[in-house]
């Protein structure tokens, strides 16, 4: 009986496999924390949300103070995820090493809770590899970050035979928001234009962002098309050549 209730609760809490989530930290970049008004987290989240929806995903998530450690972990099993926040190679005492991760918003300028790869991996135990993970933060595109692995995506680039049905994007070193905004807009545009994830990434490298301010990295399958499975290949209609 107890087992059945627990199973039902787990099913109720687990996002459906067709779902995506977009999380963005607004508070840490807000005027009261930095001295300058900043709408870039909202714009980055809006771009990601529109793209996920156009790719056929049901989109949840949180922007601002409701992006907490709890809300993120509750969505950790989604198939497509976007996060914009502070990221670093944070220390994981269980792994006794620096492992990557990012901060929640939680309404805090400083000291917001950190989400570690091991915590996400624990929530995802038994779930298949994610389809598209975009971690728009500093440092989580570095090999030392274990985030992609937490989502079931090995740190390798595959093109051709045996490609995984997964794609992970993040940044190496410091990532400036202005450059990220341009790069991400081009990446989403590429996907909505019908490009595969790898081709969309290549196209985004060509847009006007300052390469001194952004070093994007990816892992997964170059030819992966990260649309919701039930959506099939989306018909972008007039968007194809817009």
């Amino acid at each position: 009986m107890v087992g059945a209730i627990l199973l039902a609760a787990t099913i109720a809490l687990t996002p459906p496999s067709e779902s995506a989530a977009v999380f963005a930290n607004r508070t840490a970049f807000a005027e009261e924390c930095t001295g300058t008004a900043n709408t870039q987290p909202d714009r980055l989240a809006r771009q990601a949300r529109s793209a996920f929806a156009a790719l056929g995903w049901e989109v949840g998530g949180a922007v601002g103070p409701t992006f907490t450690r709890h809300s993120l972990l509750a969505s950790a099993t989604v198939t497509a995820l976007y996060v914009h926040s502070h990221g670093d190679l944070y220390w994981d005492s269980k792994a006794d090493s620096r492992v990557g991760g990012f901060r929640a918003d939680a309404g805090l300028c400083l000291g917001a809770p950190i989400l570690l790869p091991s915590e996400i991996a624990a929530m995802r135990r038994g779930a298949p590899a994610a389809s598209l993970i975009y971690i728009s933060t500093c440092h989580n595109g570095e090999r030392a970050s274990r985030l992609s692995v937490a989502f079931g995506i090995a740190q390798r680039k595959v093109q051709g035979a045996n490609e995984p049905d997964s794609f992970y994007v993040s940044y190496v070193g410091i990532a400036w928001q202005g450059a990220a905004l341009r790069f991400e807009r081009a990446f989403w545009r590429g996907l909505l234009d019908g490009a595969t994830a790898g081709a969309a990434f290549d196209r985004a490298l060509l847009v006007a962002y300052d390469p001194k301010h952004l070093t994007p990295e990816w892992w997964g399958g170059y030819n992966h098309a990260p649309h919701a499975p039930a959506a099939g290949i989306p018909d972008f209609g007039t968007q194809r050549y817009v």
Partner: peptide, 26 residues
Amino acid sequence: VLFDGTAIEVQLDAGSLALLGWDGAP
């Protein structure tokens, strides 16, 4: 660099020194 380590750039009009724009790095 802000107190929390965030890199920031402010851009001021070269003539009037009015704020034109800015950028930051999470």
